[in-house]
């Protein structure tokens, strides 16, 4: 009797002591990355900035107190003589060189800026990922012919990468003419080789892994291996790059506007175009440049922070 009691209490006591620590469960890469992302200050700041930006982009036009295009206070601004109107009661951000309300223009312009960023990122992502996936699949499982195809594709991306992105954009803009679409296409095309290289490299790295070998030895068809095994495991750097490229797209679009290739239509305000117009009056009215510039910087920073935090969260080297 007493022996039995000691034995059970002994086991209970051991169970109690060992239960003190929780055993870590093997969470999936994505879930764990998300958990780490939530703990990252960078990610939270980035996400908040992006959320604010998206909200403004969506509801901005309804919030704007005045028309963004009406030159309501035209008479008060004499750009040629260096007379500008800064922030005041009715115009929180002051007036631009044509006597339009800057605050309203900023609110409305967010949508165009977001559009430029997202569309050009998508162009780069979709086309780049397509090229990269074909090239990567060909290189990993396509045999000798596949490798040759991969060689050719990579040489072409080499050529594209050899061009300064701005000049590539300028060349495209020269053919397509001056418009917002041109800017989006130009900025997007510049990203294609980057995405392609990234996905291909990532797929190549995955293709050499043991689980691919295991899948092949099980006799699974190559197309299926690429689609169900290699691709899902290769996507994380591409997703990170997509986030980061939203930032570069917005900055590059501003640079293109500065070079005079932006949207010539004054009816649609866009931060990059606003900045390039305002910078001509920088010496007399620096604030006029500041608003769009700071907005661009903060937005780009938001995407950069989130992207960098994602990169860290997804880095297998940092996994526990």
């Amino acid at each position: 009797m007493s022996l039995a009691t000691t034995k059970t209490s002994k086991i209970d006591r051991l169970a109690e002591l060992t239960a003190k620590k929780e055993t870590s469960s093997g969470a999936s890469l994505w879930r764990e990355a998300f958990r780490r992302l939530r703990g990252s200050k960078m990610a939270i700041i980035g996400a908040v900035v992006i959320a604010a930006f998206v909200v403004v982009a969506i509801v901005g036009p309804w919030l704007a107190p005045y028309s963004p295009t009406a030159q309501t206070w035209r008479g008060e601004v004499l750009a040629n003589q260096g007379e500008f109107v800064g922030a005041r009661g009715e115009n929180w951000f002051g007036l631009d060189h044509l006597g339009r309300d800057m605050f309203s223009r900023m609110l409305v312009g967010a949508r165009q800026t977001l559009l430029v960023g997202v569309v050009s990122m998508l162009i780069g992502l979709v086309l780049g990922a397509l090229v990269g996936a074909v090239s990567g699949a060909a290189a990993t499982l396509g045999g000798r012919a596949g490798q040759r195809l991969d060689d050719v594709v990579m040489r072409v991306t080499d050529i594209m990468l050899a061009l300064p992105s701005l000049l590539l954009a300028v060349s495209i803009a020269a053919v397509l003419g001056q418009s917002l679409t041109t800017v989006m296409i130009a900025v997007g095309v510049v990203q294609i080789p980057i995405f392609a290289r990234l996905l291909r490299g990532s797929m190549l790295a995955q293709g050499g892994k043991d689980y691919v070998l295991a899948a092949r030895s099980l006799g699974i068809r190559k197309r299926r291996i690429v689609l169900t095994q290699i691709m899902p495991n290769s996507l994380s750097p591409v997703i990170v790059q997509a986030t980061l490229s939203l930032a570069t797209a917005i900055i590059e679009a501003a640079a293109l506007s500065y070079l005079g290739l932006g949207n010539p239509d004054p009816a649609i305000p866009e931060w990059g175009v606003m900045l390039s117009q305002a910078q001509r009056f920088f010496d007399n009215a620096p604030m006029m440049s500041m608003y769009p510039a700071v907005a661009i910087i903060i937005t780009a920073l938001g995407f950069t922070l989130l992207g960098e935090a994602m990169r860290e969260a997804l880095d297998p080297k940092l996994r526990g």
């Binding site: 000691t6 209490s9 002994k10 051991l14 002591l17 060992t18 003190k20």
Partner: peptide
């Protein structure tokens, strides 16, 4: 709390914990 080896030990007893 006790002997760290106890959970793997065949000879552990109450005194080990």
């Amino acid at each position: 709390d006790g002997c760290a080896f106890a959970p793997r030990c065949d000879r552990y007893e109450m005194g080990c914990l």
